[in-house]
């Protein structure tokens, strides 16, 4: 069973998958807490259109991914101010981009395989260069989220209070969406759009049902994400079925019983969890210090 680790391409898949799972778990936690699963899905679909455009122009798909997802994330933050309006605005931008993606694909002949590898990912086709690239950009993303993490969390749980305390709520939201866009861009090359979404949503969704304290939830999400990825590669490497299927099935298989047997968090309980951590207080204090 473990004999597959002799192959360098499995080793690369393993390392790249671990980096992606870690970055996705951390950013995914904020995505879930802010109720932005749809934006995560939309940005990955938009990335597909961008990659198709880049293939048509003959440049590396990662440039198309970055241009499309970052532009779209800015457009989503401008158009979607209201929560209900946000989903629709996100969806319209996604559909518009996908329409362009279809046009690009129809202009580019002999597309099927490349389109599929972007959509569904080929984690076993990762090169050593891809691994280094993913590692460096993943590290940058983690540093960025560590910097804006605290105020971002504060504004996610109580936007009004955060705003009155001088936290730049809207700017933080936009920066966060751009970070998500970049995460999707760098990881799509490696694992495909489908898997990026699964790793962004799955582990944190399970983690916040089990643990309420933000840091512990993030840690649990990372552990879950790594476990799914490793098991998925192990199972996929030993069977004819694709790795992404195993990872999504594992993530759903763990989530379902947790969802059914945990009472679930409502806003009150998560607020209590925040109080326990006294994150609210410490953020308030740090803001006060800054004001003084």
């Amino acid at each position: 069973m473990f004999a597959i680790f002799q192959y360098p391409f499995i080793q690369n898949a393993f390392i790249a998958g671990s980096i992606v799972a870690t970055v996705a778990a951390v950013l995914g936690y904020f995505l879930i807490v802010r109720g932005l699963s749809f934006a995560g899905h939309a940005l990955s679909s938009i990335g597909f259109a961008g990659a198709a455009g880049a293939i048509l122009l003959g440049v590396s798909p990662v440039y198309g991914l970055m241009v499309f997802t970052v532009t779209a994330s800015i457009a989503i933050s401008i158009l979607g101010r209201e929560v209900r309006e946000r989903d629709v605005a996100t969806g319209v931008i996604m559909t518009f981009a996908l329409g362009l993606g279809i046009l690009f694909l129809s202009l580019y002949h002999g597309y099927a395989e490349q389109a599929y590898s972007i959509l569904f990912g080929t984690i076993v086709g990762v090169s050593r260069d891809d691994v280094v690239f993913t590692f460096v950009l993943g590290l940058i993303l983690l540093i960025m989220i560590a910097i804006i993490g605290r105020p971002l969390l504060f504004s996610s749980f109580d936007a009004e209070l955060a705003e009155t305390r001088g936290v730049p709520v809207r700017a933080l939201g936009s920066i966060f969406l751009i970070l998500i866009a970049l995460t999707i861009s760098i990881t799509t090359q490696v694992v495909g759009i489908l898997l990026v979404f699964a790793l962004l949503i799955g582990p944190p969704a399970t983690a916040i049902r089990l643990v309420h304290q933000p840091l512990r939830a993030i840690a649990l999400a990372i552990i879950l994400g790594l476990t799914y990825t490793w098991l998925g590669i192990l199972l996929g490497g030993n069977s004819p079925w694709p790795v992404s299927f195993f990872i999504t099935a594992l993530s759903f298989g763990v989530y379902l019983p947790v969802r059914l047997f945990s009472k679930g968090i409502d806003s009150k309980r998560s607020a209590k969890g925040l109080e326990k951590l006294s994150i609210t207080d410490s953020v308030l204090e740090s803001q006060k210090d800054r004001n003084d």
Binding site: L36, S37, H41, A198, W241, F245, F252
Partner: peptide, 20 residues
């Protein structure tokens, strides 16, 4: 939001399986 997202990612995985 989360439930829909989870169902979506699982179903996409199923789609990949069927496709393969």
């Amino acid at each position: 939001d989360i439930e829909v997202g989870m169902v979506l990612s699982f179903v996409l995985g199923l789609g990949v399986l069927f496709l393969s």
